[in-house]
Amino acid sequence: MKIGIDQMAFATTDKYIDLRELARVRGDEPDKYTIGIGQDQQAVVPPTQDIVTLGAAAADKLLTPDIRERISTVIVATESGIDNSKASAIYVKHLLGLSDFVRTVELKEACYSATAGLQFARGLVALNPQELVLVIAADIARYGLATPGEVTQGAGAVAMLVSQNPHILALEPTTVSLTKDIMDFWRPLYATEARVDGKYSTNVYIDFFKQTLARYQQLTGRRLADFAAVLFHLPFTKMGKKALEAVLQERQDEVAQRLRAALTASQVYSRRVGNLYTGSLYLGLMSYLQNGSAQAGDRLALFSYGSGAEGEFYTGILQPGFATHLSAVPTDLAQRHQVTIAEYEQDFQQQLGMNPADVSFDVTKDPAKFVLAGQKDHQRIYQCR
């Protein structure tokens, strides 16, 4: 029985900044951001948006009356949780109007947990082939204003339906996971911004990719030539290039050229949105499928990484007609509007964060269907309009 990703959709905010403008305001050369980091634009998060509203917006694009009835489980993978106890998936389930007879859970392991959610969903469908599992990767990457990590911020959500006989990607059985206790990136309970050792984290990422790839090759006998593309978690697009070049090195043959071209296609959307943490790998998958030379029957390799650290290398086979089961990401990006750096900084500082006070936000300026209206008696207030 084939099991895998049946449909995918993406959502982000309606605002963005141009990183060339940010570079000028911060006193940096624009090339440092656009070439050195590999980012052009970055999603800006108004206070009326969070992982719940973004996750609901992405998932809503997938829902038909039949799908609503068939969803048995909602998994939200995030490292931007809004409660230490209650799963964000419960809020998403409520906003989407799903049945009360639905299982909901939230997963956490830095940027990796969406892959865990995908594998868990695969197991649920294997147990009951009639089940349809909704996996949502939703995050807001925050490092602070005028910090070294500011240029790698971003926000958005990717929603995936996992089923038997999937229309997009049938997952293959062999996967390789690698876990080590490493302090390359973390976010203490008392902090709204992450702590990161950037250079160390990059080295760990590359090492995990090389180790999981090598182990996969040992188990399967497959080579790089067997992959139409290798897709990466992209906290910033240059990271994927660093990892790929670590194994290609000086190769200039047809295989190396194909994998480099596929990587470039997978970076298109991330360059314009920024870091999605748990969703970055899967936005990269959507970007490759809509901008690359993907064909049904191709074997795709995916490398998932979450600091702390966890990595996984796995593969899937593209299915016929996959292109018609992806939401129109270019349309979403075209509907955004650019804001000034001052406006971005104001939105950044108005986030609800860890504020215990009652707050009321003006939602009239946010065109989104799902919004965060504020907080009362320590409870977040969401609206579906």
Results as ranks from 00 to 15, higher is better:
86 K>F: 13
64 T>F: 11
132 L>H: 06
165 N>L: 05
137 A>C: 07
129 P>F: 01
52 V>T: 09
63 L>G: 14
134 L>I: 03
93 K>I: 01
158 V>A: 02
84 N>E: 11
114 A>Q: 04
107 L>Q: 03
159 A>D: 04
56 A>Q: 00
76 V>Y: 10
84 N>G: 15
68 R>Y: 09
62 L>V: 10
146 A>M: 10
50 D>A: 14
119 Q>E: 04
107 L>W: 04
118 L>F: 02
133 V>M: 02
54 L>Y: 10
100 D>G: 15
57 A>N: 02
167 H>S: 07
139 D>C: 06
104 T>Y: 08
108 K>W: 06
89 A>R: 02
152 T>L: 05
110 A>Q: 06
120 F>P: 15
102 V>C: 15
153 Q>K: 00
56 A>S: 13
72 S>Q: 02
153 Q>M: 05
48 T>W: 09
105 V>R: 07
137 A>Y: 03
161 L>R: 00
158 V>N: 03
168 I>S: 09
153 Q>Y: 04
166 P>S: 00
68 R>F: 13
140 I>H: 05
94 H>E: 08
87 A>F: 10
53 T>P: 12
101 F>N: 12
157 A>L: 05
86 K>Y: 07
143 Y>S: 05
111 C>Y: 00
69 E>Y: 08
62 L>F: 12
154 G>A: 00
56 A>N: 05
112 Y>H: 06
57 A>Q: 09
49 Q>D: 11
115 T>N: 08
54 L>R: 11
164 Q>D: 00
91 Y>Q: 11
114 A>D: 02
155 A>D: 02
75 I>V: 13
127 L>T: 06
103 R>E: 04
84 N>V: 14
51 I>W: 09
85 S>W: 09
119 Q>G: 14
71 I>W: 07
91 Y>M: 13
163 S>Y: 00
48 T>A: 14
124 L>K: 08
117 G>I: 02
139 D>Y: 03
83 D>Y: 03
59 A>P: 15
71 I>Q: 06
133 V>P: 15
84 N>Q: 14
142 R>K: 11
159 A>E: 01
111 C>F: 01
147 T>M: 03
117 G>R: 00
128 N>K: 04
167 H>Q: 03
76 V>H: 12
51 I>H: 10
111 C>I: 01
159 A>R: 05
59 A>F: 14
128 N>R: 02
101 F>Q: 07
159 A>V: 02
165 N>M: 04
50 D>F: 12
95 L>A: 10
164 Q>P: 09
146 A>F: 10
143 Y>G: 10
160 M>I: 00
51 I>N: 12
149 G>L: 04
54 L>M: 09
53 T>Y: 08
92 V>M: 13
96 L>E: 01
95 L>C: 12
153 Q>A: 07
80 S>P: 11
81 G>Y: 09
73 T>L: 13
101 F>S: 15
59 A>Y: 10
157 A>C: 06
149 G>R: 01
130 Q>M: 12
48 T>H: 14
163 S>A: 13
104 T>G: 14
49 Q>A: 15
90 I>N: 13
47 P>N: 06
78 T>P: 14
128 N>I: 01
144 G>H: 03
113 S>Y: 01
140 I>C: 13
56 A>D: 07
103 R>D: 03
118 L>M: 06
49 Q>Y: 10
145 L>A: 12
98 L>H: 06
68 R>P: 10
145 L>H: 05
88 S>H: 09
